[in-house]
């Protein structure tokens, strides 16, 4: 008989809250504390909790290894591409003033996209490290 029913039910209750909180920290970072790094760590924590309670293979069905390993460089590329977009629009690298019709909106878009890049890389890095550690214990 499985004795981890409490863990399973508690995890099911807390997981949606963690994911919503990660989204809140990500998208409310302009107004309150937080940003891409914190949101990425919290979202990765949610997936890691899911993996701890329901098993590594369940977590890897939710977020496949291939997706994780694509997202690690993708976030850095998104960040760097925002800089290049600024260059192409006739501004300095990582200067967002010309990304939209006026400087304030350009800054908001720039920070939003850059935070998205940070989120993608941090989220996938935490998961990649967890998968790499947890995967070693399993004998195939």
């Amino acid at each position: 008989m499985r004795l981890d029913i409490v863990l399973r039910v508690a995890a099911k209750l807390i997981l949606p809250l963690m994911l919503v909180f990660a989204l809140y920290v990500q998208f409310h970072g302009d107004y309150g504390p937080g940003g891409g790094f914190q949101a990425g760590a919290i979202a990765a924590g949610a997936v890691i909790l899911y993996g701890l309670v329901y098993g590594l293979s369940a977590a890897q069905r939710l977020v496949p290894v291939a997706a994780v390993e694509t997202m690690v460089p993708l976030g850095v590329l998104v960040f760097a591409a925002v800089g290049v977009a600024g260059l192409l629009l006739g501004d300095n690298y990582l200067d967002y003033d010309k990304l939209a019709h006026d400087a304030v909106h350009g800054q908001e878009w720039g920070v939003f996209l850059v935070e998205a890049g940070v989120f993608i890389t941090v989220f996938s890095t935490m998961l990649a490290i967890f998968y790499a550690f947890a995967g070693r214990g399993i004998k195939e």
């Binding site: 302009d30 309150g32 504390p33 990582l94 800054q107 908001e108 720039g110 920070v111 935070e115």
Partner: peptide, 18 residues
């Protein structure tokens, strides 16, 4: 300059983007 109320986010994302 940025219209972002949270100064920490603005400094990290924009002024210290590098």
């Amino acid at each position: 300059e940025t219209g972002i109320p949270n100064v920490v986010t603005a400094v990290l994302g924009s002024y210290r983007g590098f």
